[in-house]
């Protein structure tokens, strides 16, 4: 194994032997000193995950989160130096993490936090002004093609994940949100999160794939509720915006 291979292999694995040929100034094998790097790496990765998933951290507690993050980081070290995106697969990992199986809302809360982070970092685009569609006759409206904003994300929750998130993220207005769809977007610089009517996710998905407005609505959905939610949140981008 190369020098850096042995060094790298021992960083995240406490059971791995510390690399050879490292010493302290007295010539003694460096163990305590190598552990400075082990600690730095673990702390840096844990802190990056805690910054992205503060509500999960609050729900499980700091010590539990740190232990969980260490286990996650050992299995999934970052594949990029951009720590702003590290941990995108943490929600899926939590879903398969046996010790949290009794808290099935936890992966859903983590997905809200991940969507929030993605929305915060997505490309900027001016939201579509709903007045642009105001004068259109119904058939022209049904034929219109709208572009979902680059920051928009819709999640489906089977548990009251949005309510739990709201109670722990200083958003008491969301504290009674029922299970169901959750819309996350960022029409300006501030991320918006709200409960969305059933069918919102399917509508946006169809629009993103090029369907017209009329064709995008799933059967049985409430069109006026869905459009009120999407336009209210600024979930569409202006057409022809160079950044979309």
């Amino acid at each position: 194994m190369s020098g850096q291979g042995a060094f790298a292999g021992a960083l995240l694995t406490p059971e791995a032997p510390r690399p050879a040929h490292l010493s302290d100034p007295s010539g003694t094998r460096a163990t305590r000193r190598f552990d400075v790097y082990r600690n730095n790496v673990t702390v840096a990765l844990t802190e990056a995950l805690a910054a992205a998933f503060p509500v999960v951290q609050r729900l499980v507690g700091e010590a539990y989160f740190a232990a969980m993050a260490r286990e996650f980081a050992q299995a999934h070290p970052p594949r990029s130096p951009v720590m702003a995106t590290y941990g995108a697969d943490l929600p899926d990992w939590i879903e398969r993490f046996p010790p949290l199986a009794a808290l099935p809302y936890m992966p859903e809360v983590a997905r809200i936090e991940q969507a929030r982070r993605e929305a915060s970092q997505a490309a900027d685009a001016a939201p579509l002004d709903p007045r642009a569609l105001a004068g259109l006759p119904p058939e022209a409206l049904a034929a219109a093609h709208l572009h979902p904003h680059p920051a928009v994300r819709v999640l489906r929750s089977h548990h009251p994940a949005l309510a739990i998130w709201g109670r722990n993220a200083d958003r008491p207005d969301l504290a009674q949100s029922p299970p169901g769809e959750v819309l996350v977007t960022r029409p300006g610089l501030a991320v918006k999160i709200c409960a969305a009517p059933t069918g919102t996710a399917k509508t946006l998905q169809a629009l993103a794939q090029g369907a017209s407005l009329g064709a995008a609505l799933p059967a049985g959905a409430d069109p006026s509720a869905i459009f009120a939610c999407l336009f209210g949140a600024g979930a569409f981008a202006q057409p022809g915006d160079p950044e979309t």
Binding site: G5, A44, P77
Partner: peptide, 17 residues
């Protein structure tokens, strides 16, 4: 310093001989 090995990034400034 180095911080990446075989695609894994360690988020620390690691030493070299």
């Amino acid at each position: 310093a180095w911080s990446t090995h075989e695609g894994a990034y360690f988020s620390d400034l690691l030493p070299l001989p």
